[in-house]
Design a protein around this nucleic acid. Sequence first.
DNA 1: CGGCCATTTGAGTGTATTCAAAGTCGGTGG
DNA 2: CCACCGACTTTGAATACACTCAAATGGCCG
Lengths: 216, 216
Amino acid sequence: MLAYRAQPNPDAMLDRALAGVIASGGSLGDSQPRQVEFFSPNAQIYAQGDRATALYQVEYGVVRLFRLLSDGRRQICAFHVAGEVFGFADGQHHLFAEAVCDAAVRVFRGPIREDKSLLTLAMRELVRAQDHLLVIGRQTACERIAAFMVDLYDRLGHEQHFELAMSRTDIADYLGLTIETVSRVFSKFRSKGYIKLHGTRGVDILQIEALRGICA
Amino acid sequence: MLAYRAQPNPDAMLDRALAGVIASGGSLGDSQPRQVEFFSPNAQIYAQGDRATALYQVEYGVVRLFRLLSDGRRQICAFHVAGEVFGFADGQHHLFAEAVCDAAVRVFRGPIREDKSLLTLAMRELVRAQDHLLVIGRQTACERIAAFMVDLYDRLGHEQHFELAMSRTDIADYLGLTIETVSRVFSKFRSKGYIKLHGTRGVDILQIEALRGICA
DNA sequence: CGGCCATTTGAGTGTATTCAAAGTCGGTGG
DNA sequence: CCACCGACTTTGAATACACTCAAATGGCCG
């Protein structure tokens, strides 16, 4: 999981935004504004319905945000890796947040200060969700997997090799597929020489342009 | 389309937010900060790639926001009705915005002022997108249509009768289905007595609780 | 009233799912 | 260090749901 470890954040705006998150009204002595919390795999960070009182930044590891139907069907709305901010919600959380693997999360508690940069971060999250809508609503299984691989490749710094933090079940629930379909497409891409699989989590990207082409 | 006409906005916060959108730096004489623009059916309000320089509030009519794939596949991310605000984007628009029917849109130009209420509006939009992800990613055709009908029913003020501003094609592209499937499910719901159809756009909701039950 | 376009309905197909079984990986304990 | 166990993953076969293609119907506007 080396690829998911925190790296120096290239986005200066993000730091400015988070520096301004804490309202100055509270006593600094009581709250620890930049406390880091640690989570084991599958540990819950917050639940749907919880009051939204903080923002979170992934320090290392991976976090999944998801919704559930009453019969257990799950839709993962987003994975977040080191440096990314999550927890945007109006009043109460509509999503569950869990650690995918061992993860550390920096928690920004207290009332949120008005901040244009914070709005920008929320809007980026919105764009991500809208992009994901297109993938899930209008793309085939192969296109979805290709888009997923390309997205990870880009977000993890264009490393040819990386480890998937998430299981096939997580990937399936992210892409609106079944684990069997995910597995079949992985095998197909392997047989075509686009990727190479090392055990169950390791991935080599052999033909990134081919994968980009599949995304349409 | 009466149901889509502007109504007194029940959400005081929204007005406060928009009142604060315009930065005080600009000359009031030059810019018309609350200009209303009118659009014919299918007229473009902005395009993907356009610089995002304004926010928009629907005065009357319906607006669709969508993304396109190079081969023409379309995913409508949201419909917006009277009173709702759209146009959130970081730098440039990632979506197209078009009028579904005759529509009027109030445009708020100028640099966006930092505003907590604005952040709240953006987060609501995010929640809508995330809810939609679950519908598209994990629900059947019947569940998607039921969710769509219930959503419209709730947003248009619980009127038993309303007119659909959007075509079957629009509905299909919103729900990640084909027009034929949309039509079949409409017919199915009609034969079950959940809804009644008047021509091609008119809808009577006969058993809203049955529809809510289908959404799971 | 006529023509055009959107919608509905029908028949057959295909992609992804379900159900089932085999295989592989990773972790644990001897 | 190796063997075993359990869980996850892969593969296979059959099914189902939604899609494609096609034709008929219906609504709307001139």
